[in-house]
Nucleic acid binder design. Structure first.
Lengths: 188, 188
DNA sequence: GTCTATAGATAGATAGAC
DNA sequence: GTCTATCTATCTATAGAC
């Protein structure tokens, strides 16, 4: 069964991308620690060794999944930091954050809820002070307790909301308008 | 070293309670799947068998940890449902939810973020429609998409916030006044 | 009530055939 | 590039001595 063309379903780099897709799905369902390489292999109908041919360790899979959303997040933060007015800063930040969350719902949920993923996200040499910069932007120029509570509440909620079952029927346009609106309400 | 009185540190039922304390701490740090019975035993300086003497399975530990906060949650929900005016309903609900979260920060965080804990919380015959009732109360009499997004965002954020490292220096009084206030702002 | 010992399954990971 | 086979470590859980 030769596959000589790059079909639209599973493009180039097939095996690797399919492994990442399966891992992302299973990680978000069972957590990183709750997902074995055997489960990923079974999901694809291959053996564990086939997965290990693409990634040398389980952690390498997690790192690969985290790379894109973390890079997008850092871009957003940098853009927001470049704004002068606080209102513009918040607008750019909230719109960007919501876009990242809606584009990477499962992975973002992992960073928020899964201790194994959170550890890898922090350790992986990547984005050492990203968390601090994000916190500063959210809490604003007057990081009193009230502002900090609101910003952490919003940040944590946002990261958990992307693939929440109770909102699976809400269309993305509503999410994309409501989430920044609520953010401005909370953080103003 | 006899303990005949119920001291404030490790009351009656010593071994069992110490096991629960260790499990709660480790579960919240590493997740349920990321915590082995060996880790719990090591944390207490005992063997795995000592843990298995108190609990027959790992899941039984999780169920035991979830019982109290889930029971408290159901009480709050019932109290709120008994209110006539929407404003009173929301006041009772928000104050109660915040109290539960602040009293059980680690466990509540597990229910929100850990798929293994969430599954046990739902399956464990306990509180079959608690989630639906809570959602109805939060979303209010007009559960349009906007109200639902706000209620899920608040609920998810609240459950993740109890033992968040960025808020560890905020005094409980501030949390207890700010969190319901933000909730009313979002859900009104 | 806590231990040793161990079963049985599965984890992550490697080597080498095809 | 995917397979079989296998290693070692660790997992949950049990049985039985002390």
């Amino acid at each position: 069964m030769d596959v000589t063309d790059d079909s639209a379903t599973t493009q180039r780099g097939t095996a690797r991308d399919r492994a990442l897709d399966a891992a992302r799905t299973l990680f978000s369902q069972n957590g990183v620690s709750g997902t074995s390489l055997q489960m990923i292999a079974d999901h694809l109908g291959v053996t564990k060794a086939a997965i290990y041919h693409q990634f040398h360790t389980k952690e390498e899979i997690v790192v690969t999944l985290l790379e894109k959303p973390l890079a997008e997040l850092e871009t957003i933060i940098t853009e927001a930091e470049a704004m002068d007015a606080r209102e513009d800063q918040l607008d750019v930040l909230l719109k960007g954050l919501v876009d990242v969350v809606l584009a990477n719902p499962e992975v973002v949920g992992l960073i928020q809820g899964d201790p194994a993923a959170a550890r890898i996200a922090q350790v992986g040499r990547l984005h050492g002070d990203t968390g601090r910069r994000l916190t500063n932007l959210l809490s604003g120029p007057h990081p009193d307790p009230e502002a900090r509570v609101a910003s952490v509440l919003y940040g944590a909620g946002l990261m958990s909301i992307g693939h929440h079952p109770l909102l699976s029927d809400i269309d993305p346009e509503t999410m994309r308008s409501e989430l920044p609106r609520i953010g401005r309400l909370m953080l103003r």
